[in-house]
């Protein structure tokens, strides 16, 4: 488990450069460019189960969903930030990527701390401290539980038809 730590206002161009938005659409095409203009180490070294910790307004900017898709695909366990921008937040729910808004957890983290999360209980463990975060409303949980918005919609259409 590794924690990738970044600052405030990490925007969508840093998470996935705009110049690739119409040439890379599959997850495999997206992965090598994740965080390319922010941290050249990330794409080659990120591992399943890693966390991202960041400041306020994470994911601001464009409506592009490739960052959420890509971070979910490389196995980011959760993005923990002081706050998120709304389109990124929505896109992440729609992809089933776990976002945790906890300024306290972000501020208490120091390099080398072990991090773990219990999404059902709404708890995040940073070093020897535990922080609670608000659970998602049922409408959003339903989408995450279905495995993302597309799976949810497909299920809904199936039931309607029958």
């Amino acid at each position: 488990m590794r924690v990738w730590k970044y600052g405030d206002d990490i925007n969508t161009d840093m998470l996935f450069p705009g110049k690739y938005t119409y040439t890379c659409s599959t997850v495999e095409e997206i992965k090598p460019h994740l965080l390319e203009d922010l941290d050249t180490e990330f794409a080659s070294n990120v591992q399943k189960g890693d966390f991202i910790f960041a400041g306020k307004n994470f994911g601001c900017g464009s409506s592009r969903e490739q960052p959420a898709l890509g971070l979910k695909a490389v196995g980011i366990r959760a993005v923990v930030a002081e706050s998120f921008s709304r389109i990124f937040f929505r896109a992440s729910i729609n992809q089933g990527l776990l976002l945790i808004e906890s300024p306290e957890a972000v501020r208490s983290y120091s390099a080398g701390d072990e991090v773990d999360v219990d999404p059902v209980e709404g708890k995040i463990y940073v070093g020897d401290k535990t922080f609670s975060f608000p659970k998602l409303p049922p409408e959003m949980l339903e989408i995450i539980e279905a495995g993302g918005l597309l799976a949810y919609t497909k299920k809904k259409l199936e039931t309607r038809k029958n």
Binding site: R64, E65, R90, A91, L149, T153, L157
Partner: peptide, 18 residues
């Protein structure tokens, strides 16, 4: 307001969202 591509796909099919 802006939304992501996945949500646009879902709206094309169902015509609704939250």
């Amino acid at each position: 307001s802006g939304i992501d591509r996945t949500e646009a796909a879902s709206i094309m099919l169902t015509g609704e969202t939250w």
